[in-house]
Simulated scan of single mutants.
Amino acid sequence: MRILLIEDDPKTAAFIIKGLGQEGFAVDHAADGEIGLHLASEFPFDAAVVDIMLPKRDGLSVIECLRKQQNPIPVIVLSARSSVEDRIKGLQVGADDYLMKPFAFSELLARIQALLRRASAQTDPTSLTVADLRMDLVRKKAFRADREIELQPKEFSLLEYLMRNTGRVVSKTMIMEHVWDYNFDPQTNVVETRICRLREKIDRGTEAKLIRTVRGMGYVLE
């Protein structure tokens, strides 16, 4: 999952980026409203975390612009403003949630996960299943039949993306857009390497191979 963070305070941004990275999210960071609006308009994101007090363009203006563009990205507002009027204004311009500073990272994470569940409209938002492969999204665990699969955070994110697109061929570019951030070098072979490791972990010792390479197009889990 790919998150856009628009936050001008370096310490707060570093705190969020580190925490979300450890949870397997790819995070793109913008330190002002204009860059944030550009990124949200040009690149696909699964959710955005937006501070209100930003240089060049404030967070509410960014959200209002995105909604005028018919951009449905789920947005959580971060703000030190605690009045009811401020919270109402944030929701009225198009934010989906409002979190006051200071905040606990665990609460921010829970709110992001709740937004992603609603956006994906999963009938069972806590788990994904394909054949005998099962992913527990809450406990961050994956199983093939009764065997638990040990996955690194990026491997978990990659498998989750493949499972959410079961039967659909996803290209290297699509994978990089959702699992890695936009600064990632597209010329590297990191996707191929991660797919190879993931396939080895998922399909090892089984007759049914779930992850398949579609030559010249990408990868599919089916």
Rank of each mutant, 00 (worst) to 15 (best):
V77L: 01
Q122G: 10
S83G: 01
F143R: 15
Q70S: 07
R139M: 12
S157N: 11
Q92A: 15
G167D: 08
D51I: 04
F103Y: 06
R134N: 11
K56E: 08
P74H: 03
S157G: 14
A119E: 03
S82A: 15
R164D: 09
R134M: 10
V49H: 00
M163P: 08
K89N: 08
S171M: 07
S61N: 07
I88P: 00
S120Q: 14
V169H: 04
L91R: 09
A114Q: 09
T123D: 11
D51W: 02
I112D: 00
S127E: 07
R118F: 05
S79L: 08
P55D: 06
V170C: 03
P55A: 13
G94S: 05
D86S: 07
F143T: 12
K172S: 15
Q122I: 02
L116A: 09
F103V: 12
I73N: 09
P72T: 06
V77H: 04
K56Y: 00
E155T: 07
V130A: 11
E150C: 09
L116G: 12
I149N: 01
L78V: 07
L115H: 11
A110E: 10
D124T: 15
G59D: 04
E148R: 13
L108D: 06
V62M: 00
V93Y: 03
S171C: 13
D86E: 03
F105I: 15
M100A: 15
L158M: 15
D86N: 06
D146I: 11
I52T: 07
A131D: 14
F45G: 05
V84C: 08
F105R: 10
A48R: 07
S79D: 03
